[in-house]
Design a protein around this nucleic acid. Structure first.
Lengths: 338, 338
DNA sequence: GTTGACACCCAAAACGTTTTGGATTATCGT
DNA sequence: ACGATAATCCAAAACGTTTTGGGTGTCAAC
């Protein structure tokens, strides 16, 4: 019932070796027999047993990704990245092995399992930490991987968005609209990109001749609810900011909720801007000004790079840095929509 | 360098068999030796080679899903389903193997590959067709699977949302708001759930004493752009509808664009309703009235069922039918927001 | 002293593939 | 006619695990 090389070999009156080599397209098998073998394989609906193949040949044509469980559902970021990676993986004939895990220890051990049990040929890693144990592990294990994001020790292939420039343009834009009291809701310091985004904020304020004010710098956890609470604190200040930049769109949406909750109008009383340009951003009320990270394309390019690494081909660019695009919508202070 | 059972066996001065059985927790190995073996395994960082294990034991602890490539990116539906399935899979210690494929032949052959190459223990299948070759194949192959959706021949385990009731409530709600000219933008007829949703539409109109009008029934492709174009046609009618029900939220959002494009106001001039309650639905302008499909939970429950099927345990319910919840927001004709 | 019963351990086969290192013919130049 | 070369084919090993079907030693009971 199960059709293996052996079945075909018997059917064709040939050896398993020959069948194997014929199907693999080696040159040392007669073209006629090859065709005959292929025909039989087709007829019997032969599919190679991948476990056996992997066991023998030590490659799996599978890419691994670990998705943090907490943000799994709520986070459009991973979904979009996954789409890009998955799409491109399909292009190369690779499959995608997902493992949803609690961040932290759990997550690291998921990588450990995937790598050591040789289930995957490579890893795409996202949302890198400033000091990332997962990267340390993969480097140590000499296992192919590509990261979305730079960390402190960045001697590995990565693709990243220039967050500093992104936030810089955002703040520049707000300054041009006349804002002086501009607050920022940062992502957790442990994340590698936080530093860059904060840098952009500092640089823009500096060039505009605005002093950095500690009270306008808060930190939250990238969720909508976290953004709402952080914004609340900012709005309760004796001299509240007139513009709030959030380090991602989810927190920006939370910020908009907080603003509405205290009876003020987003875009008129307080400007709001985010980062990412998730699909929802275009449909908030008012639509959200943000910085577009082409996450989907990043996923695809990350996979391109990963495949190179796996094949041990030289990478034309081991460090890709994309300049994000400023997307101005109504939340940053256009006259009330329509 | 690679640590296998053999490495441990040598280290411990025991046979591979004993090491294997010790780690698997069989009773026929001395508790002391077992502990010693476990300690060594730990120390050397042993991870079983899954390819070998699968080759031998014919089970992979992996669930397969095929995602249609076209709707992959744009479609929040699959992302959310994936989240639920992935989450619950992690709970059971299963991994998730994704394959992004063109719908149609390609997709079917992806299933064929996955199944025949014995990479997966089971399949979660979504968006079933009225007459679904994938289901036919999986039944034929006697491979464990659970579907999200019923089809014509539904003698297989599935979980589904009662689309008829969902649309019925939607239309009922619109009728209560005084609408009489209610149009519907259907999903493609090939999809199994289209029939049910249309049925709900018919029933509701019937009970309200409204005659079915062919001109108010159009069909589109579940995308935002498709919805926009379909709505355009409806709005160009000599006697255009005052309310439009779309079979999913994406098309509803397209509908809202079309309405705005011809200078009318959503919720005042024309009511709009969708189906799914995707995350974006709450943030459109105005927020979208829709029917909530708990896709995430459906994913989790589908996986629960699948695990039962894989383990050959009896299912307490082989056919789960959820009644969806009506979510009334401003797009269906509330007074202009705020 | 023999016999079971029991606890503990192991050799070898099997899973289905790829790869290595020839073996067997046929063909050909001389 | 004879070695050489090329064209085909194949047996056997290897990958790392689980499982089968014992084997060995100890100990109590007779």
């Amino acid at each position: 019932m199960k059709v293996t090389l052996k079945t075909i070999a018997e059917e064709a009156g040939l050896s398993i070796t020959t069948v194997s080599r014929a199907l693999a397209g080696y040159g040392d098998v007669n073209e006629d027999t090859r065709r005959r073998i292929v025909a039989i394989a087709q007829r019997l609906g032969y599919q190679p047993n991948l476990a056996a193949r992997h066991l023998r040949s030590k490659q799996t044509r599978t890419i691994g990704m670990v998705i943090p469980l907490t943000s799994y559902f709520s986070d459009p970021f991973f979904m979009e990245l996954l789409s890009g990676v998955g799409r491109q993986a399909a292009e190369y004939g690779y499959d995608l092995l997902l493992s949803a895990q609690q961040p932290g220890e759990e997550e690291l051990s998921a990588y450990r399992r995937m790598v050591a049990s040789s289930r995957i040929d490579g890893v795409v890693l996202a949302r890198v930490l400033a000091d990332d144990p997962r990267i340390a592990f993969l480097k140590e294990a000499r296992h192919p991987f590509v990261a979305f994001g730079r960390s402190n020790a960045n001697d590995y292939p990565y693709i990243d968005v220039d967050g500093a420039t992104g936030v810089y343009r955002l703040v520049e834009h707000l300054v041009a609209r006349g804002h002086r009291r501009i607050a920022i809701i940062l992502s957790p310091r442990t994340l590698a990109f936080t530093t860059a985004r904060f840098e952009g904020y500092q640089r823009a304020l500096n060039e505009a001749g605005i002093a950095l004010a500690g009270q306008y710098i808060v930190e939250s956890d990238l969720t909508q609810e976290g953004g709402r609470m952080a914004a609340q604190r900012l709005l309760d200040l004796p001299s509240p900011p007139t513009a709030i930049v959030a380090c991602n769109d989810a927190m920006a949406i939370g910020t908009m909720q907080a603003i509405r909750a205290c009876g003020r109008v987003v875009g008129r009383d307080v400007a709001v801007a985010g980062f990412d340009d998730i699909p929802t951003a275009a449909f908030t009320d008012p639509p959200l000004t943000t910085v577009r990270q082409p996450i989907y394309d990043i996923g695809r390019r990350a996979l391109d790079m990963l495949v190179c690494v796996i094949r041990q081909e030289p990478l034309d660019e081991a460090h890709v840095l994309l300049v994000p695009e400023l997307i101005v919508r109504q939340s940053s202070g256009a006259p009330p929509s329509r």
